[in-house]
Lab assay of single mutants.
Amino acid sequence: FEIPDDVPLPAGWEMAKTSSGQRYFLNHIDQTTTWQDPRKAMLSQM
């Protein structure tokens, strides 16, 4: 499912887009990137 862009990312995360428009996520805390939206895990725990 798609999460609306107005749902905030967890602390330390940033959303970016590739030149082709694909979204990816940067974790500044552990210096990693992922295609997986970290908000999905956050919302599934609620």
Rank of each mutant, 00 (worst) to 15 (best):
W13S: 03
F1R: 00
N27P: 00
R23D: 07
Q22R: 07
T33E: 03
P4V: 09
Q36N: 08
M15R: 04
S20W: 07
S44Y: 03
L43T: 10
A16T: 10
M42D: 06
G21R: 03
E2G: 08
Y24S: 01
A41P: 13
F25V: 01
Q22I: 08
I29Q: 07
L43S: 12
S44H: 11
M15Q: 09
S19I: 13
P10L: 01
V7I: 13
W35R: 05
T32W: 11
L43F: 10
Q36T: 09
D37S: 02
K40S: 11
Q45H: 15
L9T: 07
A41S: 13
M42G: 13
F25C: 02
E2S: 15
M42Y: 13
S20R: 12
D37H: 02
T18Y: 01
W13C: 05
L26W: 04
T33Y: 02
P8S: 05
A41E: 07
A16V: 08
P8E: 05
T18Q: 04
L9A: 04
V7K: 12
Q22S: 13
S44R: 12
L43A: 13
F25K: 00
L26Y: 11
M42L: 14
P4F: 10
D37L: 01
Q31R: 14
A16M: 09
E14L: 02
Y24N: 06
F25R: 01
P10Q: 01
Q36C: 08
P8Q: 05
H28G: 05
M42E: 15
G12V: 01
P8R: 09
G21K: 06
K40T: 10
T18V: 06
G21M: 08
S20M: 11
F25E: 00
R23Y: 01
G21T: 02
D5A: 12
A16S: 13
T33W: 03
S44Q: 10
E2F: 13
Q22L: 08
D6R: 09
I29A: 13
Y24T: 02
L26M: 15
E14K: 06
E2M: 06
I29P: 06
T18S: 08
R23H: 08
I29R: 12
R39F: 01
D6V: 07
Q22E: 15
W13M: 02
E14A: 11
L9D: 02
N27F: 00
P8D: 09
G12D: 07
P10E: 04
P8L: 06
E2P: 14
T34N: 03
L9N: 01
T18N: 04
Y24Q: 02
D37R: 01
V7E: 06
I29E: 13
W35F: 15
A16L: 08
H28L: 07
Q45K: 15
V7L: 09
G21F: 01
F25A: 02
Q45V: 08
A11C: 05
M46T: 15
K17C: 10
L26R: 08
H28V: 09
D30E: 14
T33I: 03
M15N: 05
T18M: 06
F25W: 07
D37V: 02
D30K: 11
Y24E: 03
A16Y: 08
I3D: 06
P4G: 15
A11W: 04
